[in-house]
């Protein structure tokens, strides 16, 4: 029965040109024209800078696979980042801060899932609504001000290293491994493929698509909570607008990575490559100091070109 629900893992070879080609080309280009690009310090910069987006883009991939969308992620990240700051400031405990962030993030995730699954509100609308709520709450709890003076234990998360590797990269790798395992090696992963491709099959298998859907959105919220900790650690403060708009970056990375909005199948590695492409592009353009207006347009061009290449492949 469950086999019916499986949409097979897409043939990676078929995907490679879309996003991986873009990434390889960008890396090759910048190695030649941008001095210092290939240095360890710089590559480590690119990776560390990409961690927060990775943590949003991975759950976003799952959500998009269910033919959903989560526009609230950036705003929820902002709110959880503030919660981490406020709670760790009050309790002097990083873990309690993280707990608060996770709690608020997951609550928003569950709310999103509930609105989408139980009330049947289209994901775009439901999460646009919760975007407003999270943004409003961020402004209200902080009164528009930065929250500073948080304990060093929070900040250390961003700057510390483990076996010589920066902790954010370790966290992103662990996250990736967890998502990969979850999606490709557990039943839950199979169900997620089914949520996008074949909900009827799930019902026949005696499973509740609604609960699964809520779980997927809850994962998104929880990840926004963890990313919120990283954001707070990075700024050593909480700020009421820090993460706004990141959801669109995450969605763009997922799309660049070859996850389809229509067929409901996703490719986690593609998402990771998509995040890295955006990161490499921004970093490389900073290094060669192109005018900022070109940098603004370049991300748009990257998204369009990658999707266009993908379109060519799928037609061929």
């Amino acid at each position: 029965m469950r086999e019916a629900a499986i949409v097979s893992e897409p043939n990676p070879l078929q995907r490679i040109p879309g996003v991986a080609m873009v990434l390889v080309l960008l890396i090759a280009l910048f190695s030649v024209i941008a001095p210092g690009f290939l240095s360890v310090a710089n590559l480590s910069n690119v990776l560390v800078q990409s961690t927060i987006l990775t943590m949003l883009a991975l759950p976003m991939t799952l959500i998009i696979m269910t033919e959903g969308l989560d526009l609230s992620m950036g705003a929820v990240l902002t709110l959880t980042s503030l919660c981490v700051a406020i709670v760790s400031l009050a309790t002097k405990s990083m873990l309690l801060g993280l707990g608060a962030g996770l709690l608020v993030g997951t609550a928003f995730g569950i709310a999103n899932g509930w609105l989408v699954a139980i009330l049947g509100i289209p994901p775009f609308v439901a999460t646009l609504g919760t975007l407003g709520m999270a943004q409003g709450l961020s402004l209200i709890v902080s009164d528009g001000q930065s929250v500073v003076g948080i304990p060093h234990s929070v900040r250390d998360i961003y700057s510390a290293t483990l076996l010589g590797i920066p902790v954010p990269i370790v966290m992103a790798l662990v996250t990736y491994a967890a998502f990969h395992g979850l999606l490709y090696h557990t039943r839950f992963g199979t169900y997620i493929f089914a949520l996008g491709g074949n909900r009827e099959a799930l019902r026949y298998a005696g499973l509740s698509p609604n609960r699964l859907l809520i779980a997927v959105y809850a994962i998104g919220g929880a990840m926004a909570g963890i990313a919120g900790l990283l954001m707070t650690a990075r700024m050593n403060s909480g700020h009421p607008t820090a993460g706004l708009g990141l959801e669109f970056d995450a969605i763009a990375a997922v799309a660049v990575g070859g996850t389809s909005f229509e067929r409901g199948n996703g490719w986690l590695l593609g998402t990771l490559l998509g995040v890295l492409s955006v990161g490499v592009l921004r970093n490389g353009l900073n290094l060669i100091s192109l005018p900022s207006s070109v940098q603004v347009a370049s991300v748009g061009v990257l998204v369009i070109v990658a999707l266009f290449l993908d379109g060519l492949r799928s037609r061929a």
Binding site: P35, G36, S39, A41, N42, N45, V48, Q49, I52, M231, R234, M235, H239, T241, A242, G243, G245, L246, R282, N283, N286, L287, S289, P291, S292, Q295, V296, V299
Partner: peptide, 23 residues
Amino acid sequence: QYIPTKPDSIPEQLSQIEDVVVK
């Protein structure tokens, strides 16, 4: 000149600092 592509973006300016420190 280093200017965030999203106006007043904190994460972007932080990234730009990290990139510039390499440069």
